[in-house]
């Protein structure tokens, strides 16, 4: 509808865009989609859980910060492979990733969530919320598990998760964007692609069951608050021992 205003990359039919997003999602997710089917991940044993629970708080925080950072790096790669993302200004790429990367990490978690045992894949095995006790933020951990459980129950396809993730990132409502209309155009294309997919697969009911934007935002705020609380209790640890990308985004 705007052939002169839209760069070439943004004028693609819905299905092509969905395919492209799916490829980007599959290429940057861990575990890979093929490993999700009939997975054989072991559950952590009692002894292993106790070992994690006995770790000093600072060490457990550092360990989890590393895992989160690895996930964020994959989301950055996902963003770079999203059609149109790299055509946004560098400023806006940073704004969108800073605001949305953690939301995507949280949504992606549901892929490796085992509803039967209420566990999530962590460092190669399935872990329940009690494994993270030494972090000292039980409400945050519980909220994350609740989100993963809720999303897991929706049984989203990889295409749905890919588009949902893309829409979490390409959000023209984020503050501080320089070229909001440009982001909105890209968001619009993704939105149409998502709706076309849902109509084609008769999954329109999914829209009403997704976690609200407010819920994801609140979870990310909760995470930031806990990072601040940790810093007050363990001054210097974040600067000295946390991954630099984690510090940049959350501290």
């Amino acid at each position: 509808s705007c052939p002169h205003a839209c760069p070439q990359a943004l004028r693609v039919p819905s299905e092509l865009l969905t395919q492209s997003v799916l490829l980007s999602h599959r290429a940057t997710c861990h575990p890979r989609a093929e490993d999700l089917q009939g997975h054989r991940w072991a559950t952590f044993s009692r002894e292993e859980i106790c070992a994690y629970q006995s770790q000093p708080t600072a060490e457990m925080w550092q360990r989890c910060a590393r895992r989160v950072t690895e996930a964020i790096e994959r989301v950055v790669e996902f963003a770079k492979r999203l059609r149109g993302f790299l055509e946004l200004s560098q400023h806006d790429q940073i704004v969108l990733l800073k605001a949305g990367a953690m939301e995507v990490v949280l949504v992606r978690m549901c892929r490796a969530f085992d509803a039967a045992t209420r566990t999530v894949l962590f460092e190669g095995k399935l872990a329940g919320p009690e494994l993270f006790r030494s972090l000292g933020c039980p409400e945050l951990v519980a909220s994350i598990f609740d989100l993963a459980q809720g999303l897991s129950a929706l049984r989203c396809s990889e295409s749905e998760l890919g588009l949902l993730s893309a829409l979490l990132l390409v959000n023209a409502g984020r503050p501080w964007l320089q070229d909001r209309p440009r982001v909105a155009r890209l968001q619009g294309h993704l939105d149409v692609a998502f709706r076309v997919l849902l109509r084609r697969t008769r999954r329109e009911g999914l829209l009403a069951r997704l976690p609200s934007p407010g819920r994801l935002r609140a979870l990310c705020s909760q995470h930031l608050e806990q990072v601040q609380a940790f810093r007050r209790l363990h001054p210097g640890v974040v600067s000295a021992a946390f991954p630099p990308l984690y510090r940049e985004l959350f501290a």
């Binding site: 790299l86 560098q90 400023h91 800073k98 940049e248």
Partner: peptide, 17 residues
């Protein structure tokens, strides 16, 4: 903004891995 997010900026600049 780029000054405060050097690592993110660098990741965005690098070629795909």
């Amino acid at each position: 903004l780029q000054e405060k997010h050097r690592i993110l900026h660098k990741l965005l600049q690098n070629g795909n891995s």
